[in-house]
């Protein structure tokens, strides 16, 4: 899978101010394992630019820190 170059221009956007350091809910539920924790900040981010837009990461996040931007044609 291709690594992401820019953490803003990806489908899964993580609001770092809301993301909890110890929580791994989004990482556990992602079927493609594309979300990981940044070891420096402890916040989740999208490491690989691959997404099925299945949305459990957004739904399971206890603080609502994740937004999945679904492409217009898939809405």
């Amino acid at each position: 899978m291709a690594l992401t170059n820019n953490r803003v221009d990806v489908p899964v956007i993580v609001d770092e101010s809301k993301c909890l350091d110890k929580c791994k809910a989004c990482i556990e539920v992602c079927p493609l394992d594309v979300l990981v924790k940044n070891p420096d900040t402890g916040k989740a981010y999208m490491k690989y630019d691959e997404c099925w837009f299945c949305l459990p990461c957004e739904k399971e996040c206890p603080t609502g820190a994740i937004t999945v931007q679904i492409p217009f044609l898939l809405r």
Partner: peptide
């Protein structure tokens, strides 16, 4: 509160 949230999510799983 953050810790409690993490614990609750983990217990849910």
């Amino acid at each position: 509160e953050g810790d409690r949230l993490v614990a609750a999510v983990n217990l849910q799983q």
